[in-house]
Design a protein around this nucleic acid. Structure first.
Lengths: 244, 244
DNA sequence: CGCGTCGTTGAATCGCTTCAATACGCGTGG
DNA sequence: CCACGCGTATTGAAGCGATTCAACGACGCG
């Protein structure tokens, strides 16, 4: 990372409020205690009882919940610039697991440090709260996705959502993005079987909308894909929320 | 309502922390500006741009989102003691609608009043934050419900969740509760067709697990129903979160 | 009384799952 | 170096769960 201004978190927050140098400086201080983890090593598996939060600075992670019957529901994939375990700082220990999908890099911080940073700077606190609230809106949208759309629409919507999220942090655009997920990941996230994910991906490819192959998502026809998925990005829109 | 101690909100928060008289007093003051609304009159339909929140004190309400294609996903049903539009106070205007299912009674408060109350009393603020975080956990559980369970399991889980929520505010128990929802409501919440909801309800009845008829849910065999639905109420458990 | 909402049931259909088999790339160890 | 195993992707075929369309009964209300 060349400078803090280019960190994914800074990029993401910048889309919400223009940050000052002082604020960049605070963000920088939050990134001191860095750690690398690889797939297979759970960052936390039963809920963050210790009061630590992580800022993900590189790699993909998923938060999931296992059911007694062996099913596995992925609640969200987290990408650079996202917080991990933020909620547990504010209050409640989350009851889902968090697992790296790729090699990842995180900055660990104690709850107190974060709260301290917030008290130093109100605007920064608001910006982070905005991010948290956006996360929540994404879960709701995920619910709608699973509840109301069929397999191909779900996939289309999903791929578009991550396109937007990744674009925000500078590692994606309307032509596509690198995506380390397997079809099994998609299946667990979308409540489908892996076999059917495969078929649905093929449909999207054959319709000329989007291609997901070899760890890359390529938007073959972005506008048609948006129309097909009825993708309305307001729920993760940067312009949306008002600073109070 | 005989006294503030018996208000649904007070009952709910009491399960989290024992409230003092002073705290009951603050809660009481929040309930001054009361309003009654009936079904058909949306409380807000496009997002709470004004900074007001409501405490629901009687009746059922649902929060939903409509899709361009005409589908209708119910995100959550809100029951007495729940906040409506709480998130929008903290930050972001919600982009879902809120619609009464029964005649309801709400107390309207301005964002400032709530924040003022919070600053007066830290424990109360924490208790309300706990409630908000519990709401979020319910959305996640809803996601899992839709993503991983079949129709009968979904229904079973749903009916149990509301059993727990209603028990907390004193209008339900392990034998059952009054439930004003139609099968269409259930269908929209669970991502099923109304016809299939009907069939699934019949199955649950014939299995001797639970009966949903004439506006009442009767648990015919609570323990077996819990086992059948794999219902694990920790996500809305009162004992769960820690006061910090 | 007649109409609208809600609940119920049947029959046909379709989307998705499941089971099964094959293929490919990659890393490991013989 | 190649054989083997493992994870991932792909495709077919059979079966089931849920949807859709349709019809009808019950109830409450103007």
């Amino acid at each position: 990372m060349t400078s803090i201004e280019d960190s994914p978190l800074a990029l993401k927050l910048s889309s919400f409020v223009a940050l000052t140098d002082a604020e960049f400086e605070i963000l920088h201080k939050l990134h001191l205690r860095r750690r690398s983890v690889g797939p297979g090593q759970d960052l936390l598996d039963q809920g963050q009882t210790d009061g630590s939060v992580y800022i993900l600075s590189a790699g993909w992670v998923c938060s999931y919940k296992d059911l007694p019957n062996g099913d596995h529901q992925i609640i969200d994939f987290r990408i650079p610039g996202d917080f991990l375990g933020l909620r547990s700082v504010l209050l409640r220990t989350s009851d889902y697991g968090i697992e790296p999908i790729t090699d990842i890099e995180v900055s660990e911080l104690r709850a107190e440090e974060l709260l301290e940073a917030f008290s130093q700077n109100q605007r920064l606190a608001t910006a982070v709260l905005w991010a948290a609230s956006r996360d929540e809106a994404m879960v709701v949208e995920h619910l709608i996705n699973i509840g109301q759309r069929n397999a191909t629409e779900r996939l289309a919507h999903f791929l578009l959502e991550f396109g937007s999220r990744l674009t925000l942090i500078g590692i994606g655009n309307k032509t596509g993005y690198e995506c380390p997920l397997t079809q099994y990941h998609l299946a667990d996230a979308l409540g489908l079987s892996a076999v059917h994910v495969n078929r649905a991906l093929r449909q999207l490819r054959e319709k000329g909308l989007v291609t997901f192959q070899n760890g890359r998502v390529d938007f073959d026809n972005y506008d048609n894909l948006v129309a097909f998925a009825e993708f309305d990005p307001i729920y993760l829109d940067h312009k949306g929320p008002l600073l109070r």
